[in-house]
């Protein structure tokens, strides 16, 4: 705030000559002023690049065993030539896993899965949740009570336990994990959307629209949704972090992605008893997972501060 005050006092031009700034450009300025948000964005940008270019960056096939192809042993540690690994040994940046697969390539491809799980499940939850919340808030009455009662029940359950219950019914697997985590996340967005709708419904401009007979659908999409967007975006970013963690936990427990899928959680789960003999098999997927989740958490925190309407002015 002090920066804008300083420029205002330094410049002599009349106030109505300054260009008006919209919500989004203000938000972006704020976002770029926060160190943690920038770190988050850098991590996520790198991650997205890795996910996009995984086939280019990978040195080996992520699911193919190197038995009989290279003279290597299972769970062999990292071997990088310019770090002093003898040149006659095949190079593996992060070492090999229990099935003699290149860990580095597996982790790169794992980035794709984690991003996919996080974004798709949260996207699914936002669409359904916002829809339910909008109906609930706009229609009110017993529809509202029914929908929100159901959402409250779901919200009360620990997300991981609920996800486990859903996966039990659907059967283990990546797609079902995605679905389970998506379903589990619906209530938060429904609640946010509902409270936004309730707040905005009372505004004069919505009243005006209603009184001149604008159709409900256009009021919902034209007036209410844009105004409810910021809390959904903030919660969605933080929600992706939770979704990725939960998905990895399910895979760790053997209920999510099945082998040989290169999923970070299942990579840790499969080799967790090898931490004494081959710590690289735990540490590298673990770091990858932490960085990803951290990236979304930092960006989400930054977005919350940048977009928070209460804090502005």
């Amino acid at each position: 705030m002090s920066a804008t005050a300083a420029t205002a006092s330094a410049s002599v031009e009349p106030i109505f000559n300054t260009k008006p700034r919209g919500l989004w450009s203000t938000a972006f300025r704020r976002l770029f002023r926060r160190r943690s948000a920038i770190i988050g964005m850098i991590i996520l940008a790198a991650l997205i690049l890795v996910a996009l270019f995984a086939p280019v960056l990978a040195t080996h096939d992520p699911v193919k065993s190197l038995i009989g192809i290279e003279n290597v042993q299972k769970r062999q540690g990292p071997c990088i030539h310019w770090l002093g690994c003898p040149a006659d040994q095949p190079q593996h940046y992060f070492g090999l896993d229990g099935n003699v697969r290149d860990l580095y390539s597996r982790i790169l491809f794992g980035a794709r899965l984690s991003l996919l799980v996080g974004i798709v499940s949260v996207g699914f939850a936002i669409v359904i949740g916002a829809f339910l919340g909008a109906i609930s808030g706009y229609v009110g009455g017993w529809t509202d009570n029914l929908i929100m009662g159901l959402m409250d029940i779901m919200l009360a359950f620990p997300s991981l336990i609920l996800a486990i219950a859903i996966v039990t019914v659907l059967g283990p697997g990546l797609i079902n994990t995605l679905l389970a985590i998506g379903i589990v996340s619906i209530p938060i967005y429904a609640r946010i959307m509902r409270s936004s709708v309730l707040a905005i419904k009372q505004q004069d401009y919505v009243m005006a629209d209603r009184s001149i007979g604008v159709p409900t659908r256009r009021i919902l999409f034209g007036n209410i949704l844009p105004n409810a967007l910021t809390p959904l975006i903030v919660q969605g970013t933080l929600g992706i972090a939770v979704a990725i963690l939960d998905a990895a936990a399910l895979s760790f427990l053997g209920l999510g992605a099945q082998p040989p899928t290169p999923e970070w959680g299942s990579m840790i789960g499969q080799e967790r008893n090898q931490v004494f003999t081959a710590p690289h098999l735990i540490i590298f997927p673990g770091i990858a997972l932490i960085l990803t989740v951290l990236g979304f958490n930092l960006l989400g925190d930054g977005l919350r501060d940048a977009l928070d309407v209460r804090q502005r002015s």
């Binding site: 943690s36 972090a241 990895a248 840790i268 967790r272 735990i282 989740v293 951290l294 930092l298």
Partner: peptide, 10 residues
């Protein structure tokens, strides 16, 4: 923030 981001299984 780091605490939020650490998976317990790791």
């Amino acid at each position: 923030v780091i605490g939020f981001s650490l998976p317990t299984f790791f």
